[in-house]
């Protein structure tokens, strides 16, 4: 019979096989990176920085891949999150509260893009450029008209523990660890935070709302046909995604010790690179693996960039150009490879 399916597949076995190969790739990748950092003389600070930006990679994963929505809002949501967090911490608010406030501010930025898309029927690309443009002024206003808010001497999630941790580290491992103590602390605190947020996100994407959001990106006609408002799903999706971008902004601000209005510049491109690097290197299949790959891709991106900087001994003024080139490599290499492969196939 034409549409009869073949015998039932051993689904369970396939799932665990997929899981194993994903884990294996992850471990190999981690070892390769460790070797790179060791012999390429890359400071472990690059890991902490990658963790700070990791959630912005997840933002791009949710908008581009899950929702199928070309959204650049991350460039605006990230500095807004940073500004809100910095101003609150500056005013003596606890860092945890400041992070939550940043998330809310980022969600509102995403809401603005979603509403422009839905109400005016302006496509996401344009809608989000409009929002980024306006967000610049909003960020300046949040920071009281200044383009920079320093957090020197204020209590951030990092600085709160840095003294105790440094003392403990030196006591345990000797004085040579003193220089790395802040970097290690960042890796621990941000690593934990990123893991917790990925777990929450994983849960969320597997709720009814999460399912509807995933379906909206694939086939919004069907979402409407099942009686759900696909516009609402776009709104929720963009709010969560850009809330995460702002959360990343609030983390990076605490890491740098200041907020700056231009903090989100070019972030969308880095986010895209992170998603693609994660996909190419880890080949994620399930939604949980994809989340990990997007966050991991950002780590790989930041470490590669740091390696290029140290290998070529470049000044920090070159950072955007190096970013652009790394992104080009990440986006371009898979395409070149595909072209080469189809060329080879035609030859045969």
């Amino acid at each position: 019979m034409a549409i009869n399916s073949s015998a039932a597949e051993p689904q369970q076995a396939r799932d665990s096989g997929m899981m194993r190969s994903f884990l294996l790739r992850g471990i190999v990748l981690a070892l390769v990176i460790a070797a790179f950092m060791r012999f390429g003389n890359v400071n472990i600070g690059a890991i902490g920085q990658g963790l700070g930006y990791a959630l912005a990679g997840v933002t791009v994963f949710i908008t581009f891949r899950v929702l199928g929505f070309v959204d650049l809002t991350v460039d605006g949501a990230f500095p807004i999150g940073g500004a809100v967090c910095a101003v609150l911490i500056f005013g003596g608010v606890r860092a945890e509260i400041a992070i939550l406030a940043a998330f809310v501010a980022g969600s509102l930025t995403g809401l603005a893009t979603a509403l422009i898309d839905i109400v005016f029927k302006i496509e996401g690309l344009l809608a989000s450029i409009i929002v980024i443009t306006g967000a610049y002024t909003v960020t300046l206003h949040i920071m009281g008209g200044k383009s920079n808010v320093p957090l020197l001497g204020k209590e951030t999630m990092i600085s709160r523990h840095s003294k105790d941790f440094r003392n403990w580290l030196v006591e345990q491992f000797g004085d040579q660890m003193r220089r790395q103590s802040t970097n290690l602390l960042e890796i621990m605190i941000f690593g934990l935070l990123v893991i917790v947020i990925l777990v929450i996100l994983y849960w969320f994407l597997r709720t009814e709302v999460g399912l509807a959001i995933r379906a909206t990106g694939k086939n919004d006609q069907m979402v409407r046909a099942t009686g759900l408002n696909h516009h609402l799903m776009i709104i929720i999706g963009l709010m969560v995604a850009n809330g995460l971008a702002a959360l990343a902004g609030s983390m990076v601000v605490q890491q740098f010790g200041f907020a700056d209005v231009s903090l989100g510049f070019g972030l969308i491109i880095r986010g895209l690179a992170a998603v693609i690097i994660g996909e190419v290197l880890l080949r994620p299949r399930t939604i949980g693996q994809m989340l990990i790959a997007a966050a991991g891709g950002m780590l790989v991106f930041d470490i590669s960039r740091a390696w290029i900087f140290s290998a070529l001994d470049l000044p920090t003024t070159d950072i955007q150009l190096v970013s652009a080139l790394v992104v080009l490599a990440a986006l371009g290499a898979p395409r070149l490879f595909d072209q080469w492969r189809s060329y080879r196939q035609r030859q045969n």
Binding site: F204, T207, E208, V209
Partner: peptide, 8 residues
């Protein structure tokens, strides 16, 4: 209404 119940 969709909610935060488990999807499947």
């Amino acid at each position: 209404n969709v909610g935060l119940r488990r999807d499947v």
